[in-house]
């Protein structure tokens, strides 16, 4: 890892009495692909949402591309243009077509003209394999297609970093592959990615580094073959056992 694109220092976040992030320190290097795994409720989504300030952390710092986003005087709207975010529930704009979904932020945020925005949007829709669906409204698309439009929408803003929050968890099993293929291609093209996922095969093959989170803390991290293949911590082992072999019944 040469230079860090994302740097997080001692990040804390609570919801009322619930201390969700308890001191997170970590970095994501330029062009690095980091997968975050961990049990439900461990704070993975909250961590991701703190990186583009959808949630405001109580203390700690978040730097993206050298800029401190947690600085109260930071222009967060400008900073967010370069941080793409993908949601479990896609969140496409239902009143806009696939093409318009990919154009709206380009025109009103990046200040591009209609024809340029449309060209960029077309290019990215083709990139995710949806060149034939540009005029479809989200309601007419499958979940997998919607998530790919959402990826094209984020790509159209030419982000330096992309955050994925369980992008395939809401999909029917047969649609997961298409989305993962697009993400794998992105990784190969050199996109810096932080991916919360339960797709262990994807993490093993695509990630440069896997981070295991539990109870608001990073328990262990390292290359996928170590963290997934040969975890050092007991908590990681218990979690992986449950994910990789869900029907297994623990003898008590």
């Amino acid at each position: 890892m040469a230079e860090a694109l994302v740097r997080i220092n001692d990040l804390h976040k609570s919801f009322g009495d619930l201390h969700v992030l308890r001191g997170i320190d970590f970095e994501v290097g330029v062009r690095e692909v980091v997968c975050v795994i961990g049990p439900s409720g461990s704070g993975k989504s909250t961590l991701l949402r703190c990186i583009n300030l959808l949630e405001t952390p109580e203390s700690g710092q978040v730097f993206v591309d050298g800029e401190e986003l947690t600085d109260p005087d930071c222009d967060i709207d400008t900073a967010r243009r370069h941080i793409g975010m993908l949601f479990q529930s896609f969140n496409l704009f239902p009143h806009l077509t696939a093409l318009e979904n990919c154009m709206v932020a380009q025109t009103i945020v990046a200040g591009r003209g209609q024809s340029e925005a449309s060209k960029v949007a077309m290019h990215n829709l083709e990139r995710v394999g949806l060149g034939d669906k540009v005029h479809a409204y989200p309601a007419k698309l499958s979940g997998g297609q919607q998530q790919r439009v959402a990826i094209a929408r984020a790509l159209s803003m030419e982000p330096a970093l992309m955050l994925f929050d369980e992008p395939t968890s809401a999909l029917d099993p047969e649609l997961v592959g298409d989305v993962l293929t697009v993400m794998r291609q992105l990784a190969e093209d050199g996109m810096t990615m932080l991916v919360v996922t339960h797709e262990m095969a994807f993490a093993r093959e695509v990630a440069d580094r896997v981070v295991f989170m539990d109870d608001g803390q990073i328990v262990e991290q390292g290359p996928p073959q170590d963290v997934i293949g040969n975890p050092r911590q007991e908590r990681t082992r218990v979690f992986l056992k449950r994910v990789l072999d869900p029907t297994h019944v623990q003898p008590t």
């Binding site: 709207d77 949601f87 704009f93 932020a105 945020v109 803003m157």
Partner: peptide, 29 residues
């Protein structure tokens, strides 16, 4: 839905742009 606002804001839209381009058109329907 909250997710609509979050998606718009994470594309870099300001609160006002999000209201005009994303929330109000959907609210109107």
């Amino acid at each position: 839905p909250r997710g609509q606002i979050e998606a718009a804001r994470s594309l870099g839209m300001t609160a006002g742009q999000t209201m005009r381009k994303i929330a109000l058109p959907q609210a109107f329907r």
